[in-house]
Amino acid sequence: MTLKEVRDILHAEVLCGEELLDTEVRSACGSDFMSDVLAYVKNQALLLTGLVNPQVVRTAEMMDMKCIVFVRGKQPDEAILDLAQDRQLVVLATKERMYNACGLLYINGLRE
């Protein structure tokens, strides 16, 4: 699934990394707890979270992720977006809740 498809499925706003939307992702994880994201080192390329702070970007960076999706209408500030831009991460924001956002991606084929 491309990040463009992720954006469309979640009716998400692109906050940074518009030029990287053709990137393909095959796996995702959803968590508000960054130590859990770090605990399960796999190849998740997409992080869905309701937590908004720079550590979300740092965690995604450490795990070689491609995209962060902020759920529940959360909006990161400029400092967070600057950091994400610098690390070449796509940042999306959706009004969907975590459960729904994960479910929508799952039924559309993102199942790892």
């Binding site: 605990a39 937590l51 702070n53």
Partner: peptide, 17 residues
């Protein structure tokens, strides 16, 4: 905990990896 850490997983994660 508001940062997404502080639930007692730091040292166990470090040992694990």
């Amino acid at each position: 905990r508001d940062l997404g850490f502080g639930a007692g997983m730091g040292l166990p994660n470090m040992k694990k990896y």
